[in-house]
Design a protein around this nucleic acid. Structure first.
Length: 427
RNA sequence: GCGAGCGUAGCCAAGGGGUUAAGGCAGUGGAUUGUGGUUCCACCAUUCGCGGGUUCGAUUCCCGCCGUUCGCCCCA
């Protein structure tokens, strides 16, 4: 068939699902507002070099997952694979560091060329925060607390917060060497992937799912043993403050994040209900990134929530309500139809929810649809009503019906509102 | 990028080398041309993801492609 279909790894968010998106956006907005985070909207595409420099050329994201192309001016353009790099670029470009500590949030589409899977798409959406300009451990805790607040307010339970410190670059380098020398004698026993990672990215071996590899790494040195006293103090403070706030976490020394810019605190919030793509929220501190991208040396911490994954969880928790109008307007005959349209418009302007039947079919059919729409009441206009400028108001549940002048109906919207709220509750 | 499973209507599906491709839900029309939720009737896939092959004949068997699901990898 000739119909054009959507591109692999993309999805249409249909009205039923859009309900959940709006719910998440509303909750997130509210909680971010209270913490006085401001929205920032960088472009969806940037110079390729931004991501290469920011995320790291050797990372999977940059080396094989970017949507990169040349535009007509022969510039290398990349659709953003994550949000932090663009936000930091904007932070530097507009000298936002002159404004002290900046608390920013963003939302929108990200693009990665990956094999689609449940909870993993090529175009996906994130909401993220960046707290730029503070090295205080309380900053780490603040952003984590915002994330857990959002998730909790949405009703999500049984999520795990995994916490680790990846130290500073020097500590990580020392650790890397220690790990390689520990693993090298076992090289032949490691699984295929891990053998390849031994020199390219040994830290990743720690979260291998291979059984034998896991046995070997059981006794491997951990990053936590290689932290200097400052890093250690920072990490301990973060833990202490999390505990103060009553936020449960578990230390996971194997937690490694895939983007190069992370320093010190790294964390993930995971769910058991998502299969292989368990991470709903991931983030951490990135003290080197602002300088790395040409700005003043500025510490920062942030996270991103995966909207699709979050919504998968939400959908398991609660069904989306179907929207139903206050009034369903039934009409037949030219004059009546014209008056019905006008009446509907006026009622909407008085903040009533009104659905107008456009079919022109028999009243029986229109009432059938009115019933299915879940309307609280029907407004009926036929030839007789059109003639007298009246309308029949029929309450669906009680089947009580009376004839009212249209002008009167419009002047009693307050009472109608009260009555509807009484019947079905405020919407 | 690799491995495995799946692909019959808007949704859930039965079927199986030979022409009528079950059924249910939803939808549309009617019984009921001015009044709903029940009921009854009718309609609703010239076609079984797409392309090619085998065959007298394929939706059914084979191959390729596409999509999707699960896992690996990676991450949100």
């Amino acid at each position: 068939m000739g119909a054009i279909q959507l591109i692999r790894g993309t999805r249409d968010i249909l009205p039923e699902e859009a309900y959940y998106w709006q719910q998440v956006e509303a909750v997130a907005r509210q909680i971010l507002n209270r913490a006085v985070y401001q929205e920032i909207r960088p472009p969806i595409f940037e110079q390729t070099a931004l991501f290469e420099r920011g995320i790291g050329e050797a990372t999977d994201v940059v080396s094989k997952e970017m949507y990169t192309f040349r535009d007509l001016g022969d510039r290398s353009i990349t659709l953003r694979p994550e949000g932090t790099a663009g936000v930091v670029r904007a932070f530097i470009e507009h000298n936002l560091h002159t404004q002290g500590v900046k608390r920013l949030w963003y939302g929108g589409s990200m693009f990665r060329y990956e094999r689609p899977q449940a909870g993993r798409q090529r175009q996906f959406h994130q909401i993220g925060v960046e707290l730029i300009g503070s090295a205080d451990p309380r900053a780490d805790v603040e952003v984590i607390a915002i994330a857990t607040d959002i998730l909790q307010t949405l009703g999500l339970k049984s999520l795990r917060l995994d916490l680790n410190s990846v130290g500073n670059p020097e500590e990580r380098q020392r650790y890397r060497e220690a790990l390689v020398s520990y693993l090298t004698p076992y090289a032949q026993e490691l699984d295929q992937d891990s053998q390849e990672r031994l020199h390219r990215n040994p830290i990743r071996i720690l979260d291998s799912k291979d059984k034998r590899t896991q046995e070997i790494t059981q006794n491997a040195p951990t990053i936590l043993d290689h932290l200097g006293s400052e890093s250690q103090a920072h990490f301990e403070k973060v833990q202490q403050r999390l505990t103060d706030l009553g936020i449960d976490y578990q230390i996971n020394p194997y937690l490694v994040r895939g983007l190069d810019y992370y320093t010190h605190t790294a964390f993930e919030i995971q769910s058991d209900d998502l299969g292989a793509q368990a991470t709903v929220c991931g983030g951490g501190r990135y003290d080197g990134l602002v300088a790395q991208l040409g700005g003043p040396d500025t510490p920062a911490v942030g996270w991103a929530i995966g909207m699709e994954r979050l919504i998968l969880l939400l959908q398991k928790l609660q069904a989306a309500p179907t929207p139903s109008p206050d009034f369903y307007v039934v009409s037949r005959g030219d004059r009546a139809e014209a008056q019905a349209l006008l009446l509907a418009q006026k009622l909407r302007q008085s903040e009533m929810k009104v659905e107008l039947d456009l079919s022109g079919s028999a009243f029986t059919k229109q009432f059938k649809r009115a019933d299915r729409s879940g309307a609280v009441a029907c407004l009926v206009l036929g030839d007789a009503e059109a003639e007298n400028h009246t309308v029949q108001l029929k309450w669906m549940a009680s089947q009580q019906q009376r004839t009212i002048p249209q002008a009167e109906l419009l002047s009693m919207t307050e009472e109608l509102r009260d009555q509807i709220d009484l019947l079905v509750g405020p919407s």
